[in-house]
């Protein structure tokens, strides 16, 4: 069980860090009917509108990586793993609330410009949610109790 727990916690931490490099939210919009789609993509490390980087884009990756490190340290201590998994859940929950609203804002604010726009969560969010589940699974089978 010790090995299984270590593997699950390590996979959860790696998945959480990987999620920061994947899109968290995406908006694909045609700013004019004859133009190609422009992508507005937020990851844990940057926000881009087309080729333009938002210099003050939120660095969501920082709390994600911190929670992932705590989860990884939990391989040694069960309570640390538990706290790490919980903090990862807290990060994911708050991020979800923010992104849900940002996506709604993108859709409502731009629907008159391009009725065919696409706005939604990116794969990073689902990888993050999976990381939370795997982290708690690692806590459940952790033998250090």
């Amino acid at each position: 069980m010790k090995l299984l727990s270590a593997v699950l916690l390590a996979v959860a931490a790696a998945a959480a860090v990987a999620a920061t490099f994947l899109p968290l939210s995406e908006l694909f919009i045609r700013l004019a009917p004859d133009q190609p789609q422009t992508a507005y993509v937020t990851t844990g490390w940057s926000t881009y509108f087309g080729q333009t980087k938002d210099e003050h884009g939120p660095l969501f990756a920082v709390p994600v990586v911190a929670a992932a490190v705590a989860t990884l340290l939990g391989i040694r201590w069960r309570k640390v793993a538990y706290a790490g998994a919980a903090s990862l859940a807290g990060v994911t929950g708050m991020l979800f609330v923010y992104l849900l609203n940002a996506i709604s804002f993108h859709r409502e604010g731009n629907i008159t410009i391009d009725p065919g726009l696409e706005a939604g969560f990116g794969s990073g969010v689902w990888v993050l949610v999976t990381a939370v589940v795997v982290a708690f699974a690692g806590v459940l089978v952790h033998p250090d109790d």
Binding site: Y82, A86, G90
Partner: peptide
Amino acid sequence: LAGSAAQVGAVAVIAALLVSERG
């Protein structure tokens, strides 16, 4: 422990947003 650790994570996201909004 779960509540406080989760709250730390949630507040850390707000901190990231705060720095961005201030910028």
